[in-house]
């Protein structure tokens, strides 16, 4: 079997916050009817979580699920399990109007960590990142400068960013520039 590598192979940069590529992450795009009991059970079985509410994300022990739109979820599983998890989902949802696609190799996951991590993101996304309006447990699909991305706070002072693999380099360099020492805004 071929040796799978992530887009940037754990590249990292220490600015006023740490920017690091997280390596391989299993990800499944799942679409269907959230109100359907079969769908709810399939989600629970694959990642151990209930369907999250609007713009919410729950992750525990390397597994999780994120709300992407009223009919789309992003299921997170360990990379090695992603192919079988996608097949299990497809099997469980057979006969219902649903879709499960393994997109693990089409994405890049980058983490921004540090006291001023909010600022790194706030400079490049049209999102209010004040403590009052963005908290751990919330996910936001938006853009980072010129490309689409989604991010959530995976802890206090820590963001996990998901973007398309084809723009991994662009996103990493963008975050790097945004995190250059001395460019702190000190507002958030």
């Amino acid at each position: 079997m071929s040796n799978a590598v992530s887009a940037l192979n754990h590249a990292s940069y220490q600015g006023f916050a740490l920017v690091e590529e997280m390596g391989l992450q299993g990800m499944i795009t799942l679409r269907g009817d959230f109100a359907d009991a079969t769908f709810q059970k399939a989600v629970k079985d694959v990642c151990g979580q209930d369907i999250p509410g609007q713009r919410e994300v729950t992750v525990a022990d390397g597994k999780g699920v994120a709300w992407m739109s009223p009919d789309e979820l992003l299921v997170l599983v360990p990379y090695s399990d992603s192919a079988s998890a996608a097949m299990d989902l497809a099997e469980a949802l057979k006969g219902t109007h649903a879709l499960a696609a393994n997109v693990s190799d089409a994405r890049v996951v980058i983490r921004v960590k540090g006291e001023n991590a909010r600022e790194v993101i706030a400079k490049i996304a049209p999102v209010d990142l004040s403590v009052a309006s963005f908290q751990p447990g919330q996910i936001r699909r938006t853009r980072l400068a010129q490309v689409a991305a989604a991010f959530w706070m995976s802890g206090e002072d820590e963001f996990t960013i998901v973007a398309f693999r084809s723009v991994a380099d662009y996103v990493f360099n963008l975050l790097k520039t945004s995190a250059i020492k001395g460019s702190e805004v000190g507002y958030l």
């Binding site: 609007q54 713009r55 009223p70 049209p126 936001r140 699909r141």
Partner: peptide, 12 residues
Amino acid sequence: PYCGVAAEETEL
């Protein structure tokens, strides 16, 4: 109306 986000122009 779908995700409840107050989205600014560049997101639309």
